[in-house]
Computed example of a mutant assay.
Amino acid sequence: MPHADTLDVLHHDDTRTRFTDVRYELHRNGIRIWSAEGEHAFTDVLMTQAYLQRESDK
């Protein structure tokens, strides 16, 4: 299950929902997200962007 420091969900009505420090699963009919606030499921997803900050090797 992928992890994201920041996850943006763009909905079909052009609204955005942002989550921080989450686990998520993409499905054919939407996305399911687990965050500190609980479990969320969206079916009106147009696009998602997930960001994961990594330590530099330098």
Rank of each mutant, 00 (worst) to 15 (best):
M1E: 13
H3V: 04
L52S: 08
T43E: 13
L10K: 15
L7S: 09
L26E: 14
R16D: 02
K58R: 07
L52E: 15
A36H: 03
E39H: 02
I33P: 06
T48I: 15
A41P: 00
S56I: 04
E25N: 04
G38Q: 06
H11D: 01
V9E: 10
Y24W: 12
L26M: 14
L52M: 02
P2Y: 08
T6V: 11
T48S: 02
V45L: 04
E37H: 04
E37G: 08
Q49C: 02
E55G: 05
T20Q: 08
N29R: 12
A4Q: 11
H3K: 12
D14N: 14
H40Q: 09
A50P: 01
E55W: 03
P2H: 03
R32E: 15
L10N: 09
V22F: 06
D44W: 00
N29S: 15
S35N: 08
Q49N: 07
H12G: 12
Q49F: 00
E55C: 05
Q53Y: 10
G38F: 05
D21P: 00
Y51H: 07
M47Y: 12
A50T: 09
A41K: 10
R16Y: 06
P2A: 05
R32N: 08
H40C: 01
L52T: 15
A41D: 03
H3A: 04
Q49P: 00
M47R: 15
V9Q: 03
A4H: 04
L7V: 03
H40E: 09
K58Q: 09
G38R: 07
K58E: 15
T43S: 14
R54I: 14
A4V: 07
V22M: 06
S56P: 00
I33A: 06
R32I: 13
I31D: 11
D8N: 14
Y51I: 10
L26F: 01
G30A: 04
D57K: 08
Q53P: 00
L52R: 09
V45G: 09
S35H: 09
H12T: 15
N29Y: 02
H40V: 02
R18K: 06
H3Y: 11
R16I: 12
H27D: 07
H12L: 15
S35D: 14
F42S: 04
L46D: 14
R54G: 06
D21F: 02
E37P: 00
H40Y: 13
I33G: 09
D57Q: 09
H12K: 14
S56G: 08
Y24P: 03
D21W: 01
D21T: 08
K58S: 11
I33R: 04
T15A: 12
Y24H: 07
W34G: 01
R16H: 11
L10E: 15
V45W: 02
M1A: 09
E39K: 07
R18E: 09
R32G: 04
D5K: 10
M1I: 13
L52D: 10
D44T: 03
R28I: 11
S35A: 15
R54Y: 03
G38W: 02
E25G: 01
M47E: 15
D44A: 04
P2N: 06
I31K: 12
R32F: 01
T20A: 08
H11W: 02
R28M: 10
Y51E: 11
E39M: 11
Q49A: 03
I33C: 05
D21Q: 13
H12N: 15
Q53L: 14
E39Q: 13
T6C: 02
E25I: 11
R18C: 04
H3L: 04
S35K: 05
V9D: 06
F42N: 02
L46Y: 03
I31A: 07
H3M: 02
T15C: 02
